[in-house]
Write a protein that binds this DNA or RNA. Structure first.
Lengths: 220, 220
DNA sequence: AGGTCTAGTATTGTCGACAATAAAAATCCA
DNA sequence: TGGATTTTTATTGTCGACAATACTAGACCT
């Protein structure tokens, strides 16, 4: 009766569940994914586990070697750098397109989002929760009005980014300064300044990368 | 005995074959992919066809609806624009990174490539073959020394781009001016000018988009 | 006749079993 | 004893059959 009741197959469920476990670190980086094992764990046939794993491969969270098996990707400095370079390119474009294509209503929603999420104020500085950061980037990706771009960011890149952040224990260090950066980006978008919006977003991601990079280096 | 004899499974073969047929237009845009039909055609079980189709989905060449089936994506102006926006972002970054990371040897190879591929000279202008364009972009993607970025471009985006070009009959119009643009990009990379390399590459792709966009509009 | 409901059909989703491959263990030979 | 070779074992790749779902066509009601 509902208009868009998206059909969910069991492979979908296993895929979503596994993705969460991997991203949240319950299944560690580099861990092996045994088809037989998982099929008993989830109470489904190997075929659906296989399909779920293949989808994890397609979003670059898992690697598979023929006749050998699938492993969760391992976190490396090189991998982190590459990921953030791609992210910088794509989110920079997203910000540019958001400045161009967002409706006035969407801009307003973005502004109120950023205000509402600056909850805690300590020492005169506003502190973010991570959820705020996620929502912010999500809305801009959506505001690009580019489905393809939105799809790439939300289905693959954000999960990989979160995997790095979670497993390196980035609970919320840099979040204080992130707020100011977010605010400037929103201003640029509000002014329909595509050039500036892209530039600020790229800087923002670069800073974020430097921060997490430091963490990764000291943990090795 | 060979060092890297990559194992090829039958799903790989079906995937590669289907991808070619789709990109080259032998299987038209919007066409339905019946699992049963394809399994008899290729002489394999439905399972391997299914896996191949799933991989085509992950490349964004095919769409699948649960319990309904898979169809080749249809070519639309909107889709083209979105694709080229993503491409502009990624290849711009690739050019920037190439300027930063390519070895002197790689730069040399790129320069000689561009010279060798300017075969035909008509009316004092050099004309490209399409293969030259492909090789050019491929080498820059590789020269970024970013595996992740390289993977995205060569496994998904380039195929989609080619699909649009082939099915719209872009044999080789704009190729004359493309040569000059390529040459400038190579110069910027040779000078290790990241900023300029990125900017020129983005322009180059923008021009290319305008060209193909015109073609799509008049064909509808 | 128009629309709704029902039965039939075709296609996809899921399953368990078998075949093929690769890693591990055991054997053989210098 | 050390290293290559064979055998074993465990895991993935492939298959055909069955179950579940969505589209189609027909019956039924008002």
């Amino acid at each position: 009766m509902t208009e868009f009741d998206t059909v969910v197959t069991s492979a979908d469920k296993v895929f979503t569940s596994l993705r969460k476990e991997i991203v949240e670190g319950d299944v560690g980086a580099g861990a092996k994914l045994s088809e037989a094992e998982l099929s008993t764990k989830y109470g489904v046939s190997r075929a659906v586990v296989r399909e779920a794993i293949n989808r994890l491969v397609s979003i670059n969270i898992v690697e598979r070697k023929a006749n050998v098996g699938a492993r969760v990707v391992s976190l490396t400095l090189q991998g982190l750098v590459e990921l953030y370079q791609v992210r910088e390119a794509l989110e920079g474009m997203a910000a540019r397109l958001a400045a161009q294509n967002m409706t006035d209503l969407e801009v307003k929603a973005l502004q109120s989002l950023i205000d509402s999420h600056s909850d805690k104020v300590v020492d005169g500085q506003r502190y973010y929760q991570e959820a705020g950061d996620v929502d912010f980037h999500y809305q801009i990706a959506k505001g690009s009005h580019n489905q393809y771009l939105f799809y790439m960011l939300t289905n693959s890149i954000y999960h990989l980014v979160r995997m790095y952040r979670v497993q390196l224990g980035m609970a919320g260090p840099r979040v204080s300064t992130a707020y100011a950066e977010h605010k400037h980006i929103v201003q640029a978008i509000g002014n329909r300044d595509q050039e500036l919006a892209e530039m600020l977003m790229r800087r923002h991601i670069l800073y974020s990368r430097n921060n997490i990079e430091r963490k990764l280096e000291e943990s090795q």
